[in-house]
Nucleic acid binder design. Structure first.
Lengths: 215, 215
DNA sequence: TTGTACTTGTGAATTTGCTCACAATCCTGG
DNA sequence: CCAGGATTGTGAGCAAATTCACAAGTACAA
């Protein structure tokens, strides 16, 4: 019987789970059938015991003395992370980043389908972004009544970020991937993850500095 | 005297530092002159004591009874994270994502300048991406002899990720921002940060699932 | 069947990170 | 100049996450 997984999985575990899945997809493509936790450590840099403990939050997936069946584990992780079924996703922001996201093959390959694009710029509304028509951001609630999407992506300039979030929340969205460099205020039951390119670069720049500050 | 900051700053602290900086830039734009740690908590959701302790790794920036001077703290954080001076950055991958990155105004505003773009597709080499000429990825080492860039961005399909990383390392790059969904193998003295859209969406999808598994 | 070489799953120990709580400091008004 | 109200910086205690270490399981060869 699978364990009760809906309660208290550490966030770091969750993030690593996604990493394992990436590695497993790779392995499956190369035709590897079986893998051990120590092999996972070699591939991902994540400690083998960590890997085993992470999995233990959700059940038992390996066989002592043997290891893990790559295909089986890949499917299990996909199920845990809910990337086994197609998820419809809304996108606000039809700029360069929005365009890159819609055209990004990895999303569709992993079952995330951007099904509607919104913008507040009247020069863009009505035009097409790849195979999608850009809609007025004001119509997002009514349009999502049909689509019933639960995930939204914000790819707008920072000053429009909070506004976009409000509209997504009003439209019934429960999870937001935010590319705007703004701290969003949303209700407690809405999950937000921020991706900030500049922050990432700043962290990298900090590490560079260590070399120089050494006397 | 500033503390020895080059030794053992927790990674979570570093990531939050970048968040504080974002908030401070915002505050500065709105003309706020002074701010307290509890106000930072209200803005960012990060515990006030956490904020103060994070700062304490690098020195003392506030005044008891008063708080922090917004402009002063902003500058201090910028200095700590080394975003005060312009950093030249190399980009590999002239696809949709690469294009979005070069056109992203936030990077330049925060002193990260993408100064060269590389690709391995001969249909793209020689053409222009915004104001930059796309160069052959094979020339990266020789070109970086002039530029002396220390940071590189990988924005290529996953199967080309490791190859791009190798070329960056060979060109003397010390820090890599990787958008390819691949686990890169690099020498110990090279820092890598991964940004994986699909992973982020998967983590969000997991959180959705909690609602449904509740009986 | 037994022994050997592996590998998992997990309680316990360790390490790391977070929060509390308070002395020390500072400004303002009287 | 002093009292009152506010806020910092940080040691100590607490919580969370990571790693260790080992019992239990498995395959295979002899």
């Amino acid at each position: 019987m699978p364990k009760n997984n809906s309660h208290k999985v550490p966030m770091p575990t969750l993030e690593r789970l996604a990493t394992y899945l990436t590695a497993l997809v790779d392995l499956a493509e190369r035709g590897t059938a079986t893998i051990s936790s120590s092999e996972i450590e070699r591939l991902t840099g994540i400690n083998a015991a960590q890997f085993r403990k992470d999995l233990s939050y959700f059940g038992e997936f390996g066989r002592p003395g043997i290891g893990y069946d790559v295909e089986e584990l890949r499917e299990s992780l996909a199920k845990i992370l809910k990337v086994e079924h197609t998820q419809p996703v809304l996108l606000i922001g039809a700029g360069n980043l929005g365009s890159a996201l819609v055209g990004f093959p990895g999303l569709r390959a992993q079952n995330f389908h951007i099904v509607a694009v919104f913008d507040n710029n009247y020069n863009k509304i009505g035009r097409r972004l790849w195979d999608l028509e850009i809609c007025d951001v004001e119509d997002i609630s009514s349009i999502n009544k049909d689509i019933q999407s639960r995930i939204g992506i914000i790819a707008v300039p920072s000053n429009a970020g909070q506004d976009a979030a409000n509209k997504l929340v009003a439209a019934g969205i429960e999870a937001i991937l935010n590319f705007a460099p703004t701290i969003l205020k949303v209700p407690d039951d809405v999950v937000v993850r921020n991706v900030d390119f500049v922050q990432e670069l700043a962290i990298l720049a900090f590490h560079l500095s260590e070399d120089k500050t050494a006397s």
